[in-house]
Amino acid sequence: MVRQPLQETAIAITARKEFEDLLAEEIPHLRRYARALTGGVDTADDLVQDCLERALRKRALWRPGGRLRSWLFRMLYRLYLNRRKRAAVEQRTLEHERGLLDASPATDRVAAHIEAADVVQALTQLPHEQRAAIVLIALEDVNYREAAWILGVRVGTLRSRLSRGREALRRLSADETAAPPLRSVK
């Protein structure tokens, strides 16, 4: 009974270390998706931090056969949804402000491609579920099944979010190229 623990902890430490290394590899992707979801650098990193904490806590639930990135993305997306829910009202205003504040770094980076700024701006006006789907598909190399699992919906739902979102985006960014660019807040 008592002889095992020492050995076990050694194994446990290696396992944990391995897991943490794998986790570290995914951080850039998590940050990117979180950034695209929230639009803000700090908000995104807060989300990623929550996600990593949770992943470390729930490590036992991850089966090494599965794709760690999908597992993490699913977790991240849920945390994102929770946050939205928790701060539903206040979030709305925050997001508007955030959209404005973060427009600066984002537009800086995108400055070379003015159209990109349009699409990014239009994205913020989409329903968040549609935005999450489009951005996930555009940024990550995932198939629809994985993406649907990450977002916690069925493949059919994912498809319809994508197509509705893309159409809306098309209309919005077309509008915005036509209209003066300063119509961000309403």
Binding site: R32, R35, A36, A106, R109, V110, H113, E115, A116, A117, D118, V119, V120, L123, I134, V135, I137, A138, L139, R166, L169, R170, S173
Partner: peptide
């Protein structure tokens, strides 16, 4: 174009 923009933004 949407996907390109998203990729170039993030």
């Amino acid at each position: 174009h949407q996907d390109q923009c998203i990729r170039s933004a993030w």
